[in-house]
Design a protein around this nucleic acid. Sequence first.
RNA 1: GGCGACGUAGCCAAGUGGCAAGGCAGGGGCCUGCAAAGCCUUGAUUCCCGGGUUCGAAUCCCGGCGUCGCCUCCA
Length: 470
Amino acid sequence: MKIYNTLTAKIEDFVPIKHPFVGIYACGPTVYDYPHIGNLRTFCCVDFLRRILDYFSYDVKLVINITDVDDKIIKAINQNGVSLKEYTSKYEEYFFSSISKLNIKPACFYPRATEHINEMVEIIKLLEQKGVAYRTEDNSIYFSVSRFNDYGKLSKIDKSNLKKGVRVDVDQYDKEDPVDFALWKSYTQSDGDVFWDVEIGKGRPGWHIECSAMNRKYLGQPFDIHAGGIDLIFPHHENEIAQSECAYGKTLANYWFHVNHLIVEGQKMSKSLNNILTINDISNPFALRLLYLQTHYRNKLNFTFDGLRAAENALNSLDAFVKTLFDIKMYYELEDNFDGNINDEIDRMGKRFIHGFESSLLDDLNTPKALSYLFDLSGEFFVFMNKNPKIVKFSDVNYLIALIEKVDSVLGLNLTVFTQLPSDIQELLKIRKKAKLEKDYTTADNIRVRIQEMGYVVEDTPWGTRCRRK
RNA sequence: GGCGACGUAGCCAAGUGGCAAGGCAGGGGCCUGCAAAGCCUUGAUUCCCGGGUUCGAAUCCCGGCGUCGCCUCCA
């Protein structure tokens, strides 16, 4: 499998440290607000990565952290007069429900920052011992960037250029160097109840140290893949590397996987533009998932509602294709006719499809291309079937259904999962069937309209009438 | 100022040296009791512009133009 590595800026062969095990750490949400569809894109792309590795029989251990303490959270709880836990658990739940709507497979661990203070303290102590961390007058602890020679290797940022651009933060007045970053922030009155009184002092962790602590605890060092949004490359991931590699003298992670941004109608999502969209603004989360699949993860994705509608239509046509396969399967099941080898032409289609699909995924997760093979399969199948519908037999469709089920373990579109029709619709369909037999088309058409109004499509096919959700 | 990305049909989007994937939308036709779905057909002689390398370039090189990101919290 080939994968782009931000660290080397090249597409490389993926070789895990200990085959078939793969450790992945992805920077998760800061639970101070609702996750927007940009955040969700990153998690979805990490899900693609994970599912692809699963598909190719790797044994994946995925860790996604939850940042449940930081400046913004503290500010918010002060304003709202609630406890840290009360505040963050609400947004944590929202995060979990959002990713579940997008059919993102759960990670193996979701460690919380506040539950790993000891692990952070351990690293900070080591850094102090090694003399790469120092204390300021207020007893905060900073990492001295100048002591780490490899600083900038991930983001390709030159330390000397960096200094020019950096604005000095007023409350960090006594840092030795403006680019140094906080490992431990000493307690101030405004922190309220949010502090840990530990041997390095009373205070709270800096942002970067939590990830270093948690990925080390769950995956060891080095581990295979570190993932996250593209904007985390600098400074977050650069700083994580600095801390972890300085403390332990070992590489932090071998591969760095970064997902590009999602923009909305050509603009960055931001509060000032009032264009922040969450999962609740999306009528059909599976269409959003398909939209994510249709753009390569390293390219910007311009989200528009027209685009979402287009994805929804595409999803419908895939749905119609798979439904057709199931209709045919059911038809022969009712006839008790399971006979037949797989037709040569169908077999060729299937092989071409799987080969194209898999090789696209192996090429740096080319999900848009992989998907194109599924549409090709649908087209080829219909062409074949249109020549003579009844030439397609039970074993042909059964074979194709199995293939689609298999690739859907990566796509996660639930293409072969159907929910039963509501009983009132089933009842209407029965009445319509009778009306049709009696050539009472007025009644039949009226019922069709009624069912459509309930959000379903009614279609008459050579294998009987079918009804699916629109 | 420093670092970097992108510009492919009406829209979205693959392709990074050998005849321009796929999706959505539109036109015409077939099928259908009518529909829906599907099929057929139609659409970039050309990949922002100008040069260059090459037998051959959307793809490599140089120079423009344009859009955007990061360098500050950020997925």
